[in-house]
Design a binder for these strands. Structure first.
Lengths: 218, 218
DNA sequence: AAAGAAAATGCAACCGAGTCTCAGAAGATT
DNA sequence: AATCTTCTGAGACTCGGTTGCATTTTCTTT
């Protein structure tokens, strides 16, 4: 059994952080698509092959920053206090993170956070590539965390998980849009809470209480 | 004003179909990732550059097959009879397509349809690339088609649209899985109806009527 | 029908992401 | 110190996608 991380492991960790750090610096500076991986590799003083040994794809250089949030929704549901439904637990958790101005909610106007979100949400290739993949992972994890109730099928759980994750991530994007439009986090807080409550409420009560029957017009 | 399509247009249409046809033939035969675009171009007797003039990306060679279904959900909601909510309209439409064994529901065991779905859903790169993109387009279109009710925000509509499209597409995938497992469409029909009703019902009544409060266990 | 504008094509070079091979360097092990 | 393992750099390679240019094909004009 190996106890403490040897020199090799520490060096690997340092290299990994260095690469991601240089990558993010360049991406912010020039845009994701305007920076090639060789440029990143050069900035981190490693070879292109080495870069790909640490990160399976260019997108993952960005993922590194919020890798620790992976599976958070699943955890929240698993550890929810008695008396709370999964939806209620996730709602409460989001509101809590909102109050704390957690970057993951999008409601954070620190320049550092903001420029990162600009990169993440404002780059189409990242939006469709990375955000979608992150979403899938969250959904898979959450689907497993949902209770296996009487008349639920794998599909039922998967669908519920999707609905829940989508709400959370869309709320995050919406808050980012608000920040990107120039409002401060404190200014936007009340609206953000209202939107969150509306979005989760819509899930709890069902869509038909929100969107009505047709007008009959041709 | 040009009335009927000239020779040029007809030839372009023919070429376009030929390329997509050859592409699909090769993809089915050897798998999406095992066929290069130059191979497809050669089979269709055009140059690589020409292929990309007709299709912006390799994935779009596959999209061609169901391009006519684009915006279907949005249309269904727009043209729904009075008395039906958007959710109810989409539910009814899906059940109708299910009864007709429409390939888009996944409930179709014709070898031709089946091999296409195997390709589409069984290829990771297509799943994450194409299906996700198709989903986004459907969501965007549907979000615009949803009625602009009293306390709805752009986000509200976008979320509702996402929930609705996701249900439809996940039901499709689930039916494909059933087909891929060897059941016939007729055998699976009753179950497919039940799943669809459960999935849409879950949306109408809200998640909290399905997934209960926590158990309190650590 | 001939001539010229407009559009479509093929060719070839190019770019960037990602993989592979292989030789050599650096950490771990005795 | 010697060996064994792991990590790295260099470079060639594949593939998706783009670009510039010369050539051909279709449409239009007279």
């Amino acid at each position: 059994m190996d106890e403490l991380p040897g020199l090799r492991e520490r060096k690997k960790e340092r290299t990994r952080n260095l690469i991601a750090h240089e990558a993010l610096r360049l991406f912010r500076e020039k845009g994701f698509d305007e920076v090639s991986v060789v440029e990143v590799a050069a900035a981190a003083e490693v070879s292109k092959a080495t870069l790909f040994r640490y990160f399976p794809a260019k997108e993952d250089l960005v993922l590194h920053r919020f890798a620790d949030h992976l599976g958070e929704a699943a955890r929240v549901v698993r550890e929810r206090p008695p008396g709370l439904t999964p939806t209620a637990a996730l709602r409460a958790h989001f509101l809590d993170r909102l109050a704390a101005r957690d970057p993951i909610t999008g409601l954070n106007d620190h320049p550092d956070v903001l420029s990162f979100m600009d990169l993440l949400y404002g780059t189409p290739s990242l939006q469709t590539g990375l955000v979608q993949r992150y979403r899938s992972q969250e959904i898979d994890a959450l689907a497993e965390a949902l209770p296996d109730v009487a008349d639920s099928t794998p599909l039922t759980r998967r669908l519920a998980a999707t609905h829940l994750i989508v709400v959370q991530q869309e709320l995050g994007m919406e808050n980012w849009r608000t920040m990107a439009a120039g409002r401060t986090a404190d200014e936007a807080y009340d609206d953000a809470v209202a939107e969150a409550e509306r979005a989760y409420g819509q899930l709890m009560t069902g869509l038909d209480t929100v969107f009505p029957a047709g007008t009959g017009g041709g």
